[in-house]
Structure formats: structure tokens, C-alpha cells
Computed example of a mutant assay.
Amino acid sequence: MPIEPPYLRIAGGLRRRIVSGELAPGDRLPSTRVIVREWGVAMATATKALSVLRAEGLVRAVPGVGTVVAERPAPGPGGAGDGPALSRGRIVRTATELADAEGLPAVSMRRVATILSTSTMALYRHVPGKAELIRLMSDEAFGERPLGAVPHGWRPALELAARWLRSAYGRHPWLAQAAASFTGPTASPHAMRYTEWVLRALAGTGLPPHTKLHIHLTLFAHVQGLAMAGELESQALQDTGLSAEQWMEKNEPHSNAISASLDYPFLNSLFEHDEFELDLDVLFEFGLRRTLDGIAVMVGETSA
């Protein structure tokens, strides 16, 4: 009786685990390194065993993840698998709804997979990982409501752009934090379209190209910073169960003790006569107008 080659013996063992359901669609198979260690074979043998299963259509390679069990064909009409098919768009929409409801920290590939009633590894067929998922969510949010035509005059145009961005953050409070997580340029068409719109609004100002980009980034940072402050406040409420007023009341004795030290005379003088309440909407308007005033000076100097 001919002896079965080691790679076929390994492939047979993995095949039985797949057929029995021990390894479900989307589950990761042992890596070649694990196979080498557990079966005591060479790396080439381990690679050949996985190649056999791949040729049979039982497994597939996922970049950055490894070899996973391939999805089984969905049942026909009337079968158990008649729900919406898993797709990148459905995954992004589900993750966006989750972030809208619970904040960005709640989003994970495992959590999204649970909501979609599928395995975590099945998501990797459509989205490489969490970072790419968040990028896709952000770009979809930026493309939700187009800015429209650029109005005449750079100032009303920039004001419109800032208010549009603030409304986007209002619909998706997690978006500011997500955008801040990208430390370099990203291929996000809708986000890039927003930048292009702002640069077009500044086209007739005569300002140097890099100055226009700095203006865009300054306005973007102003809106984003306030949106992140609002989101952090909401997250703190969710984590502690205390509203801003309740938090202030709880910390009032400590704040009063610091004020009584007389180490901060100028800061204390701000509150001697009138109550001060931090309002992010007021701060947004103040920062926007002062920024636009500064840009107006730059444009005037360039024209002169």
C-alpha cells in the first residue's frame, strides 16, 4: 500500500475540520509556521498542503490575514441564507450606524461581524482591517451631502465650507476623531473633493498655493477641534453617567479650593461679575469670524 505524502496527510486533516464545521467559513487556518511546528515538516511541505486546499476551493488567501476557510455558496430562494449578501457597502453602513450610536471606540471588526451575524474573518474578504473600515466610513460620511457650487467670493465660500463640515460632524460625531487618526494623505475621494472645493474658492485671491492649503487646514482644524471636544464630552457622559453640569457640581469644591489660593488672579477675575458658560457654538462662530478676518488681511496685502 503506497504511503501518503505528508502534505496530503496534512491537507486531509484540515479538510476534515472544514467539512465537519470545526473550521467555519472565514475562520483562519493554521499558518505554515504553525503547521511546520505541529506536524514536524518542512516549510515547503506546509505550503504545499495549503495549496491543495486552495486548489479545491476550500480555502483562500487574505492579504495581511492568512489562509481562511472559503465562503460556502448561499442557499437558493427560500433557504436560510436569503438575508442581504455581505458586501463592503453593507459592512461600512453597519459600522457607521454603530459609531453613530455608541462612538468610534465601539467599532471593531468583531463587533460589526456580530451585528451582521457572520464570522469576523468573513469581513476581511471585503475590508482588509479596522483602519481601512474607518477610512471607508469617513469617506462615505464626507460624500453624504455634496457642497454644491462654489458661491461668488472667497469669504462666503469658506464660511459655507466651515458650516458644511460642522454639520457633517454633527450628523456623525465620531467623524472628527476618525479624520484625526489619519496622519498622512489618504486616498479618500469625497474628503479630497472637499479640499478641492475649498482651494477652488480661494482661486481668485492671488495667494500662493501653499498659503491656500494652510488656510484650508487651519479652518479644518478649527472645526475639527471643536467637534472632537463635543464628542469627548459625550463620551465622558456615556462613560461616567454624569452630565457637564453634574461633573461641574461634583468638582466644584476642588475648583473653589484652587481659586482661593489666589495663584490665578487674572483667571479668577473673569468670573467675578458675570457667569461664564462654555458654548461650543459661540466658540465656533468666534473662531470662524476671526480666522476669516485674518485671511481678509492676507488677501488685501496680496492685492496691494
Rank of each mutant, 00 (worst) to 15 (best):
G206Y: 04
D274H: 12
G206P: 11
T114V: 08
R60F: 05
S51V: 02
W154V: 07
L58M: 15
V112N: 06
L136C: 01
H273M: 09
I91Q: 01
E233T: 14
F142K: 07
S119L: 08
V36G: 07
P75H: 10
L226K: 07
H216Q: 13
N251S: 15
S138I: 10
K48S: 10
S261P: 06
W39M: 12
L219G: 15
V92P: 03
R37K: 12
G26N: 05
T96F: 02
I10D: 12
L53D: 10
E144D: 14
Y194M: 09
F182E: 12
S108H: 04
L158G: 08
A187R: 04
I258K: 05
R135W: 01
P185D: 11
R17Y: 09
P185V: 13
Y194L: 08
Q177N: 10
R289F: 00
E245Q: 13
G206Q: 05
P253D: 14
A161V: 05
G206S: 08
A229K: 08
E56H: 07
R16N: 11
L133G: 06
A85L: 04
F142D: 09
H216M: 14
F286E: 13
A162E: 04
I215C: 15
R171Q: 04
W154F: 11
R54L: 09
A99L: 02
R111N: 03
Y124G: 11
G83S: 09
G153K: 01
R28G: 05
V65R: 05
H152K: 01
E97V: 01
R290E: 11
L237M: 12
E272N: 13
M137T: 11
D293K: 01
P77L: 06
L14C: 13
T211K: 02
E272G: 14
P185M: 06
S269P: 04
V127L: 09
L262E: 15
V52D: 12
E196S: 14
Y194H: 15
N251T: 14
E71H: 04
I258E: 05
R125F: 07
T218W: 00
S188G: 07
E233K: 03
Y169R: 03
V127P: 05
F286L: 08
T302K: 13
P146Q: 02
